[in-house]
Structures are given as C-alpha cells and as structure tokens.
Amino acid sequence: MTIRNWFKFAFRALIIGGVVTGLMSLIVRWGDFYAQHFSNGEWGEAFLGLLWFVLLGFTMSMVCQMGYFAYLTVHQIGVNICRSLTLWNWVQILLMFVALLDVILFRFKPYAHSASDWLLYIGLLIVLIAAAIVTAMKKVKMTGKKHILISALFFMIFVSIIEWLIALWVRTSGGNEYITLLLFPILAVNAFQLLELPKYNAKSAEDLKKREERRAARRELEEKNNKNAKHK
C-alpha cells in the first residue's frame, strides 16, 4: 500500500472511531452526564465531554488498526504452522469459543449482580456476534471466497474481544457504561478495515502502475533527447 492510500485508510478509520464513540456517548451517557449539564445550561462542559469521548474514539481506532495489522501477521503465521487452511480454521473456531467463554465466565459473571446486568451483557454479546456474522457474510459476498468466512468471523469476534478488554478491565464506577460505549467503535472500525482494505490495496497497485508508466515515459523521453543531442 502506498503512503498516500495508507494515510487515507488510517484517517477514515480514525474518523469512524471518533464519530461512533461521540454519538454513542450521547446515548449511553445521556442520563448521568449530558442531561445534567444541559439542564443547568452548562454547554461548555457538555461540549468538552463530547470532545473527550471523540478523542477516546480516536484512541480506540488506533488500537483497532494495530490489532488488524497484527492479525494479518498472525493469520499468515497460523496458516504456515498448521500447513492447512482447514486446520487453521478449526483452531480459529476453538479460539473464538474460548474468548467468548472467557468474557462470560470471567468478565461478566463476577460483576453481574442483577438481572439487568445479565440483560446488558447478553445484549452486548448478541450485538458482537451479529455484527461479526453480517460483516463476515458481506466479506464473502465481496470476494466470492467462502473459505474466508471463518477468518473474518475470527477477526470480528476474537480480535474485537481482545481490544474490548481495555473496557472489560474497567470495574470502577461507570464500568458498564464504558463496556457498552467502547464496543461499538471497535466493531465499526474493525468492519471498515476488513471490508475496505482490499480497495485501498487495489488503488495502491493502480497508483504504482501509473507511477511506473510515467517513469518509463520520462526515461524514453530522456533517451530520445539524448539521441537528438548526439546527432546535433
């Protein structure tokens, strides 16, 4: 990928993370944060709070971008170690189940003190799995390659959970709010990366081809000028 296209790709991912986190903060934190500032006419405090959430989204976007490129490396290593895409797919399925069980048993269960807590946690897992399935199916449809379904699901579930641990470890006041808030930018940025990176790679290949054609044309022109100069 060329530097220009990588910058465009990273910038779009950054904006998606910031916008999604900012919008979700208006929903998740309205009752305990925004409402009191708006009712008191504290517009500056409300705006600064929104800005802080947008910056938090930028941070999560950068975490997701590092996670994606790390996943691309791990995926290639996994295929080489397993010596078979089928075996690597089974390993990915096992890791997905382990990650989901870890979230349920060690991240949610110790802190689920009421039915409302369980409803929230189950709802978030449904959102995670549903987003992963929709994104993976769209990836298969875009590429026409059915064998990448498991890899896409693995990235959207396993890698997203790893990135989500930043929020899952927060168990101070407002822990559930941040667990809810940060899941959505993670899913949005990861879905964007999974679906859009091939387009940027294709554009980079096209740009490199045009660059080589321009260089060849310049070399041809220089050679022609040199020949004319010698004849003179």
Rank of each mutant, 00 (worst) to 15 (best):
I186K: 04
L149G: 00
I179Y: 01
F155W: 02
L182W: 12
H147G: 11
M156W: 09
G175N: 04
I161R: 08
F158S: 12
G174L: 02
F184D: 06
W169P: 04
M156G: 09
E196A: 07
L183S: 05
S173T: 15
I161P: 02
I166H: 04
L197R: 06
G175H: 06
L187M: 10
L195M: 04
E177G: 12
P185Y: 00
Q193V: 03
F184A: 00
A167K: 08
I179S: 05
S173I: 15
L182Y: 12
A152S: 15
L197M: 01
E163W: 11
I186G: 01
A188F: 02
E177Y: 12
K145L: 14
L187C: 04
I157M: 02
F155P: 03
A152Q: 09
T172K: 14
A167P: 04
T143H: 10
R171V: 14
A188T: 04
L195C: 09
V170Q: 13
L197T: 08
M142F: 11
G144I: 07
F184I: 05
I166L: 08
L195F: 07
V189F: 08
E163R: 12
I150E: 01
L183K: 05
E196I: 07
E177T: 13
F192Y: 15
S160D: 05
L168Q: 11
F154D: 05
F184V: 01
S151D: 15
Q193D: 01
L181Q: 10
P185R: 00
E196N: 05
H147D: 15
F184Y: 13
L194R: 00
V170P: 01
L181F: 10
G175S: 00
A191I: 03
V189T: 05
L182T: 13
N190W: 10
E196C: 11
V170E: 11
W169C: 14
A191V: 04
L153F: 11
L187F: 01
L182A: 01
